[in-house]
Amino acid sequence: MESAIPEHLAKERTRHRRIPDDYAPPYPSFSARYRPGVTRVAMAYFGLQVRPGDEAAAEPALAAMAAAFGKGEGPGHWDRARTVDAAGFVTILSIAYWDDPDAFRRWYAAHGAFWTGTGPGDDRLGTFVEILMPGVERYETLFSSADRAEGVAVVSDGMSGMVQEHAYWGGMRDRIPLSQTDAMEPQGAPRIVEADGVLKVVPHGNICLIRSGQDWSDTDGDERRMYLEEVEPVLRAGMDFLRDEGLSCGCFANRYMDVVGASGGATDKTFGMSWWTSLAALERWAESHPTHVAIFGAAMKYLMTVGPDARLRLYHEVTVAAADEQIFEYRNCHPATGMLRAGGG
């Protein structure tokens, strides 16, 4: 058993974990490990928004972004996902990760800034970027198995052994290295400014992003049926609540995404990604809101029924970013897109 916080990021605690030193979690989980030379990463969400029926118009823009990822110092990993937002617009995300934000900045200046700088040149399309460049002390990852990385973990050096800080309320915070000495409370409030046709959200400090995913591609038979019929609908209901009413509990925006395969087809993977005013707001929803209590109950019933042979794979990454580690820009998007809701959209 090892700590989710790697040794080179361990500090003398001034804020205590929620567990005693001899705590033993009831099942194994794992965290991504980065070589000590990696001090910061880049997580870049390139969004495209289009009305249903106009999706063919998105193909040239999506192809241009895929081509851009292959140029210069492109990402170490990227993937693509799709959803329909509360306003009925199709949203397609191309999500890219770097383990060197300086390389990201150079690539972005040369190959990525067009996304909201000039846009694809089609008035039917809205484009946006939501970018974080957190220090490694400001995020955590958790996986139910160690042999298949997702998201930012793909650009890591590998997985840990079994970690201690999980399977209890508060584990998410305890896995973030900065939590050893900092409460990570929100600082300031976001505001929106306009420049050259682009709406920019000037962020507040310690905004929280979670990407939490499910992969049922290895399941079959009763396990697959149970997930799709008893767990996924409850999960979707919770994601819809955050999408439609999340502002009531500190969630600026939520997207429940279907992962798109390399050929453009559907996969057996989904994830929710949401922006929160703070880690504490996310914790309160997770611990006590009826929608997440229902998700947790359905998941526990599933895992208790299937047992240790469960093939469902779960993961998440949670980031608490400083104000100067964030970029939010929106061109030709409706006013309730993403972090524009932070300004009352």
Rank of each mutant, 00 (worst) to 15 (best):
G265P: 00
E59S: 13
G238W: 03
A87V: 09
L312E: 03
G307W: 07
S3K: 03
Y227E: 05
H292T: 10
V306F: 09
A294D: 01
I131E: 09
G264W: 04
G188R: 12
R13A: 05
H289P: 00
L199F: 05
V129L: 08
G151Y: 04
V38D: 13
H292K: 12
T319H: 11
R106Q: 15
P6H: 08
K200M: 14
L132G: 13
E59W: 10
D122R: 01
A183Y: 09
T219G: 01
M1F: 12
V152Q: 04
I327L: 09
A183S: 10
D220Q: 02
L235R: 13
Y227R: 07
L312W: 00
V163Q: 02
A310Q: 05
V90S: 02
P20R: 15
H292M: 05
D218P: 15
Y45L: 10
M65R: 09
G88A: 05
I176P: 14
D215S: 05
A310Y: 11
A56Y: 07
A189F: 12
G161N: 05
A103N: 11
F89Y: 12
G161A: 08
D102R: 09
L340R: 07
V38F: 03
L209I: 06
I176W: 06
L9E: 06
F271C: 09
E2Q: 12
E55S: 09
V41G: 08
A342M: 02
R40F: 12
A322E: 10
V318R: 04
R191T: 13
I210Y: 02
G70F: 08
T127R: 05
S179M: 08
G272C: 05
A321K: 02
A310G: 10
V198W: 10
R82N: 10
D258I: 10
S263D: 12
G264A: 07
W78L: 10
W169T: 04
D122Q: 03
S274N: 03
T181W: 11
Y227H: 07
F30W: 03
A103Q: 11
Q180F: 07
P25D: 07
M339V: 15
F296V: 15
Q326C: 12
K71S: 11
L48P: 00
V320S: 08
S145V: 14
A342L: 06
I295F: 01
S160R: 00
G344Y: 03
S145N: 13
A81N: 02
L142W: 12
H111Y: 11
W285H: 12
W276H: 01
T127G: 02
P36T: 06
V293G: 05
